[in-house]
Amino acid sequence: MTLTEANLIALSGAQPLVNVSEYCRRAGIGEAEERRLLLLLGREASCHELQMNIVQRRMRAR
């Protein structure tokens, strides 16, 4: 990759892709949610896509 290609990528706003399984492991996301994300997004996705598609569990009121 040349310097001009790197600059074009940086200017285009392209976000680096992360491995969905690894992200789920680091974030403590369960296996069922990981499978759902893999079906929805594939093996790699941006962090923003992952964060926007994770279903948060509801907190139980006491």
Rank of each mutant, 00 (worst) to 15 (best):
R62S: 07
C24W: 03
L3N: 14
A10Q: 05
G30D: 15
V20Q: 08
E49G: 00
E22F: 01
R26I: 08
A14K: 10
V18N: 08
R36E: 04
G42T: 05
E31N: 03
R62L: 04
L11I: 06
L39A: 09
A10R: 02
S21W: 00
E49P: 00
R58T: 09
G30S: 11
M52Y: 00
R43N: 10
C47Y: 01
N7L: 12
E49M: 12
N7E: 10
M52C: 03
E22A: 14
A10L: 11
N53I: 00
L37G: 06
S12M: 06
G13R: 04
E33P: 07
E34M: 14
R35K: 14
A32Y: 04
V20T: 12
L40T: 11
Q15L: 13
G28W: 06
G13I: 05
C24K: 05
N53D: 09
N53T: 13
R58Q: 05
L17Y: 06
I54M: 05
G30N: 15
V18T: 10
G28V: 04
T4I: 11
V55D: 09
L38E: 06
V18F: 12
I9K: 11
E34K: 15
E33G: 07
Q15V: 05
A6G: 05
L39G: 11
R35Y: 02
N53P: 03
E34Q: 15
Q51I: 07
L39C: 08
V20R: 05
P16Q: 10
L38R: 15
E22K: 14
